[in-house]
Design a protein around this nucleic acid. Structure first.
Lengths: 160, 160
DNA sequence: GCCACATGTAACAAACAAAGTTACAAAATT
DNA sequence: AATTTTGTAACTTTGTTTGTTACATGTGGC
C-alpha cells in the first residue's frame, strides 16, 4: 500500500517555520521536503483554510505560521488535511447481504474504531511545541554523540 | 489509498467453511467473494502455511479448516497473511539528517506503535468462534427485523 | 493408463490513490 | 510594466492490491 506522508511533512514544515525562518516560499519548502512547490501549495492550502498558516503573494511573499506552535495539535493538522484514511486494512463488501460478512466486518470495525479513537486522542494531546521541544533536546545531544564518529563539527548544525 | 481486504475476506471464508460447507473449491469460494479462484488460492496459501487450513487436489478436493474456529484468532490470520501494513499514514523520510524530521517521526511512530499494540491485542483476543456466535445471533434477529420491511420470507436465509 | 478435476504458481494487466509535473491565471511588490 | 509568488486545473508517474491468463503438478475415478 502507498502511505500518506502529508501529516509527517506538514509537522516538519511548520516546526521549521517557527524555528528557522518565519517566512518561506513554496520553492524553499519544496527543497526542504525534496519535492515540488505545487505539492507544497496544494498541501499547505488545507492548513490555510483551517487557519493554521497564512500565505502572501508577490515579492517577499510565502508562508508563515498563523498561530504559535503550542496552539497547534497533531489533530488540528490531521483535520486540516481532510482526515485522510488511517488504516491500510479494511472491510471487504463482497456480498452485502451475507450475515457472515456483516458479523466479520462488525468485529473488524470495532477494533479499528478503538484504534482510531486512541490515535485521535493522542494526536489531540500532542502540540507542535512538544515536538519542537524534543527537537531542541536532540540538538543538544546530537553533536556530542556524533563527534565520537567524527560526523559533525559545528555544534549548531541541524541537518536541514 | 487502496485498502487491503484480505483479513476481512479470510474471516468470511473460514466461518463459511465451518458453518455451511466443510469443503469448498477455490471456484466456489471465489464465487462467494465475487472474485477470481487464483486470488483465493493465493490468499489461502498463506493460511495453509500457517496450518489454519488444508487443501487437497483432484476430484473432491478443495479447502477445509485444519482447526476449530475457537482455535483461530484474528491475530493468527493477520500473521498468516504476512502481517501486512496496518496504517495508511506514515513517516516521510525526505531528509534523514534533519533533526526536526527525526523528532516529528518519533512522535508519529510512538502513536502508531500504541495503536498497533492495541490492534494486535484485540486481534489476539477475538476468535473466529466469537464472530460465528455473532453471526448466529444475527441469523436469529435478522428475519424479525427484515419482515418489517418485507425483504425476507425464509427464516433461515443467510444471505450467501 | 488416461482423463477430468483441482490446486500451485509465475507472469502480466487493471484499478486506484498519493505524489509529482506542467501550464497558466491571479495577485502583490518593486 | 516587470518580477515574484501563490492558486489551481489537468495530466503523468509510481507503488500496491487485486484481477487475469496460462500452464505445470498432483489426485482420484473409470
Amino acid at each position: 500500500m502507498r502511505q500518506d506522508h502529508r501529516l509527517s511533512r506538514m509537522l516538519h514544515v511548520l516546526i521549521h517555520l517557527d524555528r528557522h525562518r518565519k517566512h518561506a516560499t513554496s520553492e524553499e519548502i519544496a527543497e526542504m521536503l525534496r519535492t515540488n512547490p505545487v505539492v507544497v501549495r496544494r498541501t499547505l492550502a488545507g492548513l490555510r483554510k483551517a487557519g493554521l498558516v497564512a500565505s502572501e503573494k508577490g515579492h517577499g511573499g510565502g508562508w508563515r505560521l498563523a498561530r504559535g506552535l503550542g496552539e497547534i495539535t497533531l489533530r488540528d493538522i490531521y483535520t486540516a488535511l481532510g482526515e485522510p484514511p488511517l488504516f491500510a486494512i479494511g472491510n471487504a463488501q463482497d456480498n452485502p447481504v451475507c450475515l457472515v460478512e456483516k458479523a466479520v466486518n462488525s468485529a473488524i470495525d470495532h477494533t479499528l474504531e478503538q484504534a482510531q479513537a486512541l490515535m485521535m486522542d493522542r494526536f489531540a494531546t500532542i502540540t507542535l511545541a512538544d515536538i519542537a521541544a524534543d527537537f531542541d533536546k536532540r540538538l543538544l545531544d546530537y553533536p556530542v554523540e556524533a563527534r565520537r564518529f567524527g560526523h559533525v563539527r559545528d555544534h549548531d548544525k541541524t541537518g536541514s
